[in-house]
Simulated assay, not measured.
Amino acid sequence: MKILLDEEKCVGAGQCVLAAGDVFDQRDSDGIAVLLDEHPGQERSGAVETAAQLCPAQAIRIEKG
């Protein structure tokens, strides 16, 4: 699984951090999400999928395979 985060789309809602705080964080300066782990393990797939679904800006994409 590969995670793609479009920082340009991000609105800083923080839902990704709440759902998968070990994969996403937010910049202190503006709240924009940052990706901590581009290739999280399969055990994190549920949390990452939840984060993508909760993102109001649809800034998170998941590539499987």
Rank of each mutant, 00 (worst) to 15 (best):
residue 51 A to N: 02
residue 2 K to C: 07
residue 28 D to G: 14
residue 61 R to H: 11
residue 9 K to T: 06
residue 13 A to F: 08
residue 16 C to H: 02
residue 9 K to L: 15
residue 42 Q to H: 11
residue 50 T to L: 15
residue 37 D to Y: 00
residue 5 L to D: 03
residue 55 C to S: 02
residue 10 C to V: 03
residue 37 D to R: 03
residue 36 L to H: 00
residue 24 F to C: 02
residue 42 Q to N: 13
residue 36 L to N: 01
residue 20 A to K: 02
residue 53 Q to R: 15
residue 42 Q to S: 15
residue 18 L to I: 12
residue 44 R to S: 12
residue 6 D to S: 10
residue 7 E to M: 12
residue 60 I to T: 08
residue 54 L to M: 15
residue 46 G to V: 00
residue 13 A to S: 13
residue 48 V to Q: 04
residue 41 G to F: 01
residue 12 G to E: 04
residue 3 I to D: 03
residue 48 V to T: 05
residue 24 F to M: 01
residue 33 A to D: 05
residue 7 E to W: 09
residue 38 E to W: 05
residue 7 E to C: 08
residue 46 G to Y: 00
residue 63 E to N: 07
residue 29 S to V: 10
residue 26 Q to I: 00
residue 38 E to D: 14
residue 11 V to F: 11
residue 52 A to T: 00
residue 15 Q to D: 12
residue 30 D to Y: 08
residue 50 T to M: 13
residue 34 V to M: 12
residue 14 G to C: 06
residue 64 K to Y: 13
residue 23 V to A: 10
residue 31 G to S: 11
residue 52 A to C: 09
residue 23 V to F: 14
residue 18 L to D: 14
residue 56 P to C: 00
residue 13 A to N: 06
residue 5 L to F: 03
residue 47 A to C: 03
residue 8 E to S: 14
residue 54 L to E: 12
residue 55 C to Y: 06
residue 15 Q to P: 06
residue 40 P to V: 00
residue 8 E to I: 04
residue 47 A to E: 04
residue 41 G to L: 05
residue 55 C to P: 07
residue 53 Q to S: 14
residue 31 G to A: 12
residue 14 G to I: 01
residue 59 A to Q: 05
residue 54 L to P: 06
residue 17 V to N: 10
